[in-house]
Design a protein around this nucleic acid. Structure first.
Lengths: 346, 346
DNA sequence: ATTTTTATTGTGTTCGAGCACATTTTAACA
DNA sequence: TGTTAAAATGTGCTCGAACACAATAAAAAT
């Protein structure tokens, strides 16, 4: 256990006052070359670690972090995010940080824009957001950046060099995993990728998952599988899918790229004459129900709670511990079946 | 954002001095009923959260935590634990905690006992240990307890009411997961549970995994599977397993209950005439090699790094944040295949 | 040489909790 | 009632870093 040095120690070792040491440490100038040298010599010899307790006790500044996430009233997928953020808040409650959650309607672009405006008005030190709307998110982040506000994103990837950090999963790989699981479930046959409820062109996550999924089978070269894509939006969903399945009786497996696998499960559960393998995303209650009755074979866990937690803590720790924010944090892609589902609710 | 109260605030609100408030908060006595009432009334109205920065700045006591883990020179499974502990150390380096790692030889009971003696001599505030040897671990924990030293365990479960906390996995469930995966991999046939390299009677983890595994198939009632058990210890391992497989040609799947699946893989990889499904534990390099060439189908990740990390941080946070130590923390049981293996190395 | 200006260095206070010690109040006893 | 013991309460210093401000030294101007 090596000695812990304080500013006072350094001052004594260098033969100057603690004020001078402080000026050197913070590069505030007003230090003679002679004194600078003396202090730096000591600093080179020892490993000075400022006492963060003392620092944050003294510093009056309260850092403000705003988190923008979709309202879970519209999509239960987002519910765990709140828990993750609150967990981070609780963990750092004694520190000088204020974390505020702002909800927007995931079905409304203008709601997203408006919420960003509100956030901007409160002029926070950092913003963590889910960039659900590509163009609008880029704009918002640009604005934050121009005001010196740090922005991080999670859940959805976005290419922008003003973003400090992304927390999420490798969606291409995620698609490959789904492919591997379906490869295992059915040894051959036709598989349909089902994109529901979101606009394919605007949903990069769907595209990435599809790419990864197809990539797996292309490299397999077995020729045992045929992959199709099926896109559908909500209102007409039920009948459309039913028709699609009836006109494609060769389909042995389905890969649902969103958290809406339960909607598909509802339909294929009614056709017990033939078990269709089904892989989807996210541990929503509805999904778990069909996982447990084995209509859904596997769910891939995107761990929104942990994403939100890590996104928040990395910002908090940046401010209070001066930790660097890692530009990309990819979470493991958890494979969930009947047996380990409950483990993921910590 | 509700106001943050300090002891001084409370003193003013209650019309007493901060010394009195301090006595009430810490139940140090020497407070008149009248003053006690006044302070408690204020305390009831507001939500006082002591400033942990100020507290740990003032408190000079350095808490000492010792961690006892098997030496990874003997078994690479333990290597990640060191990383997990160091991560915890790094995270809390500014706080008044000292974490020391002690290694023991996992093949030697006396090494375990000796290391515990060394730890005891350093009289730490808490001990986190891997109770590899059942009886000796109970004894050690008993001794720690009598000296007022908190003890937590991880990786291996142990029933003892003097233990503060266990971090690990539900091994019964873990066995069920392996069963589910093999059920999926082969639709019928004989499956052997392979216990290698450890003494079955002393290794509760093996027993629990076997119980869970058998439980799954018993409740299946399909009659499609036959489950056998095969125990073997190191030296003669290779030839014995080969003979066993030859004399049991009906075997379609193997479940290896330890991290030594690669040893089994080495053997069955040489019999390409028939693919035997193989499920094992832990992301050792050797295992990953066979996972990638698909000799091993699935690995169950026991996440030793996270176990060690959580075990350590829960003790640290107990001391510096006065957090309660949860008696049991069960980690998710991660299913790993070729596609998501690399995700688990953060 | 003396004053003024500027550069450099040192001192002292603050943050909030914890605790030792000083001071005041109350009770006990002669 | 006065004295002493005991109980209750208040005061003030400390932890380490940050920063304002005072103090000193050096340089420039008169």
């Amino acid at each position: 256990m090596e000695k812990i040095y304080t500013i006072k120690d350094i001052a004594e070792l260098a033969g100057v006052s603690k004020g001078t040491v402080d000026r050197v440490l913070h590069k505030r100038g007003k230090v003679s070359e002679d004194a600078l040298k003396k202090v730096n010599e000591v600093l080179d010899k020892i490993d000075y670690q400022p006492n963060l307790m003392a620092r944050s006790l003294k510093k009056k500044q309260i850092y403000s972090i705003c988190v923008l996430i979709p309202d879970s009233a519209n999509d239960p997928y987002w519910q765990p995010c709140i828990d993750g953020i609150n967990e981070a808040k609780k963990e750092f409650k004694s520190f000088n940080v204020k974390v505020e959650i702002f909800l927007f309607d995931p079905t409304s672009t203008s709601s997203f824009v408006e919420t960003n405006k509100t956030v901007l008005n409160s002029s926070p030190d950092a913003v963590l957001l889910v960039p659900l709307f590509h163009k609008e998110a880029i704009d918002a982040i640009e604005t934050y950046n121009s005001k010196g506000i740090i922005s991080s994103i999670f859940n959805n990837q976005l290419k922008s060099n003003t973003i400090k950090s992304f927390v999420g999963q490798d969606l291409f790989q995620s698609g490959r995993i789904a492919a591997r699981l379906l490869d295992l479930l059915i040894k051959k046959g036709t598989i349909a990728i089902v994109h529901i409820d979101e606009d394919y062109e605007n949903a990069i996550h769907m595209q990435e998952k599809e790419k990864g999924f197809r990539d797996y089978f292309e490299n397999l070269e077995s020729g045992k599988f045929e992959i199709k894509t099926f896109k559908v939006k909500h209102p007409q969903f039920k009948t459309t899918l039913k028709e699609y399945l009836e006109s494609n009786p060769a389909i042995e497996g389905l890969f649902v790229t969103t958290s809406k696998a339960y909607q598909v499960a509802k339909i294929i559960a009614k056709k017990p004459e033939k078990k269709i393998a089904l892989v989807g995303y996210d541990l929503l209650e509805n999904n778990l129900e069909y996982l447990n009755n084995k209509t859904i074979d596997f769910l891939i866990h995107q761990n929104p709670k942990r994403q939100a937690y890590l996104g928040t803590t990395s910002l908090i720790e940046h401010f209070i511990f001066e930790k660097e924010i890692s530009p990309e944090k990819l979470l493991p892609i958890d494979i969930v079946n009947t047996e380990n589902a409950k483990d993921y609710f910590l």
